[in-house]
Nucleic acid binder design. Structure first.
Lengths: 338, 338
DNA sequence: GCTTGGCACTCAGGGCTGGCGAGTGCCAGC
DNA sequence: GCTGGCACTCGCCAGCCCTGAGTGCCAAGC
């Protein structure tokens, strides 16, 4: 009974603090939420919560604010993801359904997520690893220059320039195209990589085939594309009421370091599970006052990429989690269809 | 004689203010630059410069800072673009030569430019209009779904999904491919657009051909790609010593609005000419305290895109102009080779 | 006629102070 | 175990003064 009220107090503190961004005192708390007890009682509860390390006071004569641990408890036990309104659902569907290709899906998702959450959104491009190869195309640009094009089931198209040491004619190209197509078409990237290696002539034996295959292998090796991320809503950094230098600047720098962002997004969760990393729980101590809400997306609940938002620890967790989950679902559905 | 000294004073004020970001007084000016006259004399000159609207004082008992008009005079008459050091040139060459495709060239350029200038860099993707069509490819994904791929001389690859109303077989596709190839290969985008229109059957007569051609025309219409820009160095916004809300925030918002950025970059200049727009000279009054240094790039001095940097009016113009020009040259050279 | 030193004046910024008020912790009573 | 009361703490704000940088003007000098 008493315990329950304490948790109610914690929830009220989190909600108020998120809304007002100011330390919340006992009196205001009783007034705004119908707690049915007096401020003095709430003060006792607050003292207990502080004892447990769930809230803290920025200075002696101020109200309380939640600690990271407090937010953690709030997220784990005091909140249910609030469902999107139908209007929001419809907006998501409309915006994402208008996408013309994979790049466009990613671009739109990131914008959408930023708008929904009023925070900085990050969407990782899908990894190639689960895709299958739909088609390999070789296009002759000059006799010593080919364009190799790889079309994947995910809708992604990888293109690479191949510089040849010896000129090639159209018949050779047709032959090459047929052999490559036979080797990889319909296979997953992993299988295709093996198959391509098998097609190669003995090592040391230089050939046009080797040159082309090397480029294709490189294109399939996934490094470049899976490390790409799209970022949106940087203007929402202004919502960090905090000082520019300490909070915003490092984040602004990180937004151009895709490796950092990927690490921030963390491991992909699937099946509608949303990961929340609060403050110091993240991998970078520069971001001690930022939280990350992320999840995986991909057809059939197999994660092929992550997406999420970054914001101040003081954020609307239920709303943000709902938005992240909803966008991930729609993106997954679209990838499923494509 | 006197006039000349006044200009020297203006130059000194601009240089000092850019370096220190603080209003510069007569005494400091005489000390730091060997002007050979007394502070009192400089004060007289300053009064004259202020009369002409070239400098101003933020408040009565402070030093002077240049006005937009002062910067304009400085840029037009008091400065020569300072050449890059050989080390810088080499760095540019090394970084850009490593690019694997067109997208990569743009990405690297924007990073490089941001690093060189310590400002926000913007690079427009090349327009298609001057490109010629190298190849058209159609790939069957499902019987009612094609992937249409357009390879252009600039190295750009446009891909579009085509949904067909009636199924198609491989022979039809081969036929279609041949007809389209004959119509557009080797032509410029403009010519190809006309040629494609000619291939079409009479209007109202629905056909697979029409569906494919429509998509190709849309892809060539250039809107999407020429409106794309890459942005880098947003973290350098921190260098705006100015208030966050008034200067940084609108810019941060603009950085996600590609249309706004394109307008900021303005008309392309070619032949090594660099455009400088200072403060209010630009199209948006929100950016009254920002300047844009930009130029065009493209093979053979034909502009196919713009690039530039955005920064506070208080910026190192000679250095920035040099960096912008140098990067544009290298990008042009690379596009020439490709 | 330009340059210079001198001088009075202005004003932003920093440091200090005192009052205000929000908020707390504790205690005695219900 | 809850509540009202009370003394206490301390951040914030407004007002104040002082300092110092920088100016404009003037009269004298080259």
């Amino acid at each position: 009974m008493q315990d329950e009220r304490r948790l109610a107090v914690l929830r009220a503190i989190v909600e108020d603090y998120v809304a007002t961004q100011e330390p919340v005192g006992s009196k205001a708390l009783v007034e705004r939420h119908g707690l049915g007890v007096s401020p003095a009682t709430v003060r006792n509860d607050m003292a207990a919560l502080e004892e447990e390390g769930l809230i803290t006071q920025p200075h002696t004569s101020a109200g309380r604010i939640p600690t990271d641990k407090g937010y953690r408890l709030f997220v784990d036990r005091l909140t249910t993801i609030k469902p999107m309104t139908t209007a929001e659902r419809r907006a998501i569907a409309t915006i994402l359904d208008g996408a013309v290709d994979l790049d466009d899906v990613v671009q739109r998702s990131v914008r959408l997520l930023a708008q929904l959450t009023h925070q900085v959104a990050i969407v990782q491009y899908p990894t190639l690893s689960r895709s299958t190869v739909r088609h390999v195309e070789l296009v002759v640009l000059t006799p010593t220059r080919l364009m190799a094009i790889l079309i994947l089931s995910s809708g992604r198209v990888e293109q690479r320039l191949v510089e040849l040491t010896s000129p090639i004619d159209d018949d050779d190209v047709a032959d090459l195209r047929a052999r490559l197509g036979a080797a990889v078409a319909g296979r997953t990237i992993a299988e295709a990589t093996v198959a391509l290696a098998a097609v190669l002539p003995p090592a040391g034996h230089e050939s046009t085939l080797r040159e082309v295959v090397d480029v294709l292998l490189e294109a399939m090796s996934d490094h470049r594309s899976s490390e790409r991320v799209a970022v949106g809503g940087a203007a929402n950094l202004a919502r960090f009421g905090d000082s520019f230098e300490v909070s915003v600047r490092p984040l602004l720098e990180a937004l151009e370091e895709h490796v950092v962002l990927l690490k921030l997004l963390g491991e992909a969760q699937t099946g509608g599970l949303v990961t929340v990393r609060i403050g110091h729980e993240g991998p970078y101590q520069e971001f001690a006052s930022t939280s990350v809400v992320s999840t995986g997306y991909g057809p059939d609940d197999e994660a092929v990429g992550n997406l999420g938002v970054v914001g101040p620890t003081r954020m609307d967790y239920p709303g943000t989690m709902a938005a992240v989950r909803a966008v991930a679902r729609y993106v997954s559905r679209i990838l499923d269809e494509a």
